[in-house]
Each structure stands twice: as structure tokens, then as C-alpha cells.
Design a protein around this nucleic acid. Structure first.
Lengths: 135, 135
DNA sequence: CTTGACTCTAGACTATAGTCTAGGGTTTAC
DNA sequence: GTAAACCCTAGACTATAGTCTAGAGTCAAG
């Protein structure tokens, strides 16, 4: 069982932010000590890691909360709802990966232009590097 | 030459936001009409498109401004600076793509678990689906 | 030549995601 | 048994990215 300061240093997320995430419904301590201290399990370290990853790729805290809340149970409400939500998120992720590839290509074109590539480097911006890719 | 309302409808970005981006140094009208109206060129449509793409993959407006400002000139200051900045951005993008892949995999595992995959679906969350991938 | 749609600037307001402080209680080490 | 280091709640404050309004000028159609 970790106290909030321990979880904070393990995950490199401040205790302020951890409590803030708790208010947003992203994470909750497994239990409280007699004196009311938050006590976290090792699983919560992974949970915070997931939050950080998801944030980095552009999910909002609300979306992350919804992802974390997803739980398939055999008996509970139909699988359909969950699958529908998840499949939407998968296409959102695919969409983002495409945009990422586009941007990466334009950055690479810019880098190449810099070092004497085919683009005439009298003047080259990222937008020009981007449009150079099309043909 | 497009007026702000025309650029707004072409790019699906409000005129409020376009003026806001201008204050942030992300975009500027090619010129002004006699009466002071902003007049944009067709290139600005692409520029706004780039901003939207970059935003979707998690760049801040400040970072986008820096990307758009990058310009390689034959004679101007050394290529090194630009290349260094761009190469850092490329690794940031690579890092983000890895995180995206991880999240995509966990979403797919969740979707599969939902429909009778190997994960016992008595109870399955995204974190469990994520950790299932490791072996 | 006026009415409605559009534009201008300046500045107030909002949502999201934290970040920090005040004022208090708890634990641990000496 | 007390000081330092930690934890609690509640609420104020900040940065980023918009969003909207007020009050005034511009333009195009009828």
C-alpha cells in the first residue's frame, strides 16, 4: 500500500494532480488508513501510467475516464455498448496516427531539405516541405 | 483573396479563433483591404489545415507556431539550429506514435475480449486488456 | 439610401488541466 | 515529547485555448 507521496514519486505526478485526478474520477485509492490517508495499490501505478500515455496522445481527461471506466462483465449490460464505444475510439486513434504520419513526413522532408535534398533550399518552410510530398 | 468569414467557412474554424490564432502568431492575413479587412490567400487555407492536424496530435499552439516559423534559407543562420529543432520534434512524434500503438492494442484487446476472445470476460477492463498483451 | 450581413478592436467570459496555499491533523526519528 | 516530514480538505489561482459581446465601421442588394 502506497501513500500519496509514494505514488507521486513513483509516477512522477504531483500529489496535487493525483488528488485532482481523483476529483475527476480517474483514480481512487484502494482504501483509506484509520487516519484518513489515501492508500494505493501497485495497480494504481499502472493506472496513472495509462493516464499519462493517453494524455500524451491527445485524449482529454474525460475521455480517459471513460476508457478506464469501460469494463466488460459477462452478465452486466450488453457487450454492444462497450464494443461500440471502443471501436469509435479505435478509429479516432487510427485517424490520429494518420495525422501524425503526415506531420512526421513533413518534418522529415524539412530535415532533408536542410541538408541538400531535392527541395531547392533557397527558402523552405514546413508547409512547402509538406506539399512537396504529394507528387 | 478571402475575407475572414470565407476562410472561416472553408476551414471550419470560427472567425473568433482565426483572430485568436493571429494574436498567437500562428497566422496572418496576406494584406488588409483599404477599410482594414483581413485578406487571406489560398495558402492560408493549408496553413490552417496544418494547425488543425498538429493540434489533433497533441502539439500546443506555441509548438505549432515554432514549427510554422521554421524556415530554411540558403544564406540565413546555420542549418544546424533548424535541423536540431526538427529532429527533436521527429523523436517526439515517434514517441507519441509508440504510445498511440500501445493504446490501440489495448483497445483492440478489449474489443476482442468483448466478443469471446482468450481473455476470460467475467470482468475485463482496459488495464487488464493492456497487461494481457505482454506475454 | 437604408437595411442586413459582414468586418473591426478591445476586452470580458468559459472550459480544461492543473498548481498552490491556508489551516489543520498524523507519523516518524531523534 | 517534539520537530520535520507527511497527510487531510477546501478553495483560490494560473496557463492554455478558445468563445462571446459591445460598440463602431463597411459593403452589397433592393
Amino acid at each position: 500500500m502506497l501513500k500519496i507521496g509514494e505514488l507521486a514519486s513513483k509516477t512522477d505526478v504531483s500529489h496535487h494532480t493525483l488528488r485532482f485526478y481523483e476529483r475527476q474520477g480517474l483514480i481512487a485509492p484502494a482504501r483509506r488508513s484509520d487516519s484518513g490517508y489515501r492508500l494505493y495499490s501497485d495497480l494504481d501505478v499502472d493506472r496513472v501510467g495509462f493516464i499519462l500515455s493517453a494524455k500524451k496522445v491527445g485524449f482529454t481527461l474525460l475521455e480517459i475516464q471513460q476508457l478506464l471506466e469501460l469494463e466488460i462483465t459477462k452478465d452486466d449490460k450488453s457487450c454492444g455498448d462497450v464494443k461500440c464505444f471502443v471501436d469509435k475510439k479505435i478509429s479516432a486513434v487510427n485517424q490520429r496516427m494518420l495525422e501524425m504520419k503526415r506531420i512526421k513526413k513533413s518534418l522529415q522532408a524539412l530535415s532533408k531539405a536542410c541538408c541538400g535534398g531535392s527541395v531547392p533550399a533557397t527558402q523552405c518552410t514546413i508547409l512547402e516541405a509538406l506539399s512537396e510530398q504529394k507528387p
